[in-house]
């Protein structure tokens, strides 16, 4: 089944490159270990055979589309259901031009949790990532082409009979730093604000400020990030509790309502900060305060924090209204 799927993927890539419809195809390849399927950029039809797909094709490749925003180059990208939402986001934000990309949907039965590997040499069973357990869009919501059983389908399609995983977004930091499974957002909400503050202070005290979370994020699309601005008086370059927190909050707020919960930031974080708890929490808040919204599902709907409309529920623009009246 998987073999067939991969053959199909390679075929589409070969065709797209041969016909010159795209110059680059971004997909996954077989990694150096059995549990790794890192990204690959294929530029020649004869290299299409490098493409690979399995339960370890975790990286969301759509963020790479940002590398093409200033180029007049056509590029194809393979997307799983969750990844396709990021493509929609990028299109909504005018970060990529629809006509310059070919999104190829692939079916996904859930990705496996690499953090549970205990034998690097011999393949063994792994639990699902917990983000996959909560998956609501196993099928791409946006795709120009599809492979295998992938159907572009917006229905809520919850996979069942999957075993529980603890990695990626299922975890919570207990006092001693070890992960336990269960809904982290609920647990955090149950804490007093002081305890919550302490939790995040502690979590971000180990932030390296490596910016992997930002660089991998398809919603972090600023041309120049304030964190990179040399003469910003807002935030310094050094790592310190306040500045790490500032960095974290800026990012969390900036992706609020735009985050498609692909979980990439948390996956790449080298020190294991549960970043998705922040994003999920803020997403929930936006939904509560403004309107129920699922980022990256419908390209015609604007994210709630990117528009303003009446009624002005919290009176933010009361004086503006006065002026208007």
């Amino acid at each position: 089944m998987m073999k067939q799927l991969i053959a199909q993927m390679q075929e589409i890539a070969r065709e797209l490159l041969e016909t010159g419809i795209v110059q680059t195809v971004i997909g996954w390849e077989k990694g150096s270990r059995w549990y790794l399927s890192p990204p690959v950029f294929v530029r020649k039809p004869e290299d299409a055979g490098r493409l690979w797909y399995d339960q370890f094709a975790v990286p969301n490749l759509s963020g790479y589309l940002l590398d093409y925003r200033n180029k007049n180059e056509k590029v194809a990208v393979f997307v799983k259901g969750c990844d396709s939402r990021s493509v929609v986001r990028l299109i909504q934000d005018n970060q990529v031009r629809k006509e310059n990309i070919v999104a190829i949907g692939v079916p996904c039965a859930g990705m496996r949790d690499q953090s549970a590997v205990n034998d690097e040499k011999e393949p063994h069973e792994l639990p699902l990532l917990s983000k996959c357990l909560q998956c609501r869009y196993p099928n791409p919501v946006y795709a120009d082409r599809t492979v295998g059983e992938a159907v572009v389908d917006k229905s809520l399609n919850v996979p069942d009979d999957l075993d529980a995983g603890t990695g990626l977004m299922g975890g919570d930091l207990t006092g001693d730093g070890s992960y336990v499974s269960s809904g982290i957002v609920e647990r955090l909400e149950g804490l007093s604000s002081d305890d919550r503050y302490d939790f995040w202070q502690k979590a971000f005290s180990k932030c390296l400020r490596c910016y992997a979370c930002r660089n991998v994020c398809p919603a972090c699309s600023c041309r120049e990030c304030i964190m990179d601005s040399e003469h910003s008086l807002w935030v310094g370059k050094g790592s310190s509790p306040t500045e790490n927190m500032f960095n974290a909050l800026i990012r969390a707020y900036h992706v609020a309502g735009r985050c498609t919960t692909c979980g990439e930031c948390e996956r790449v974080c080298p020190v294991g900060i549960p970043l998705m708890a922040l994003n999920q929490f803020l997403g929930q808040e936006v939904n509560k305060l403004l309107e129920a919204y699922d980022a990256g599902i419908d390209e015609t709907l604007k994210p709630p924090l990117e528009m303003y409309g009446w009624p002005d529920f919290d009176g933010l623009f009361r004086c503006a209204k006065g002026v208007r009246a």
């Binding site: 680059t24 890192p38 990204p39 690959v40 950029f41 790479y64 590398d67 390296l208 400020r209 490596c210 910016y211 992997a212 660089n215 991998v216 040399e230 310094g236 370059k237 050094g238 790449v268 080298p270």
Partner: peptide, 22 residues
């Protein structure tokens, strides 16, 4: 192409010595 230009590899590296002054 696939590099994210993040700081993980250099920050975790025990030998990378580059620094900024600010």
């Amino acid at each position: 192409s696939k590099c994210l230009n993040c700081g993980i590899c250099t920050y975790l590296c025990p030998a990378c010595h580059c620094f900024d002054i600010s």
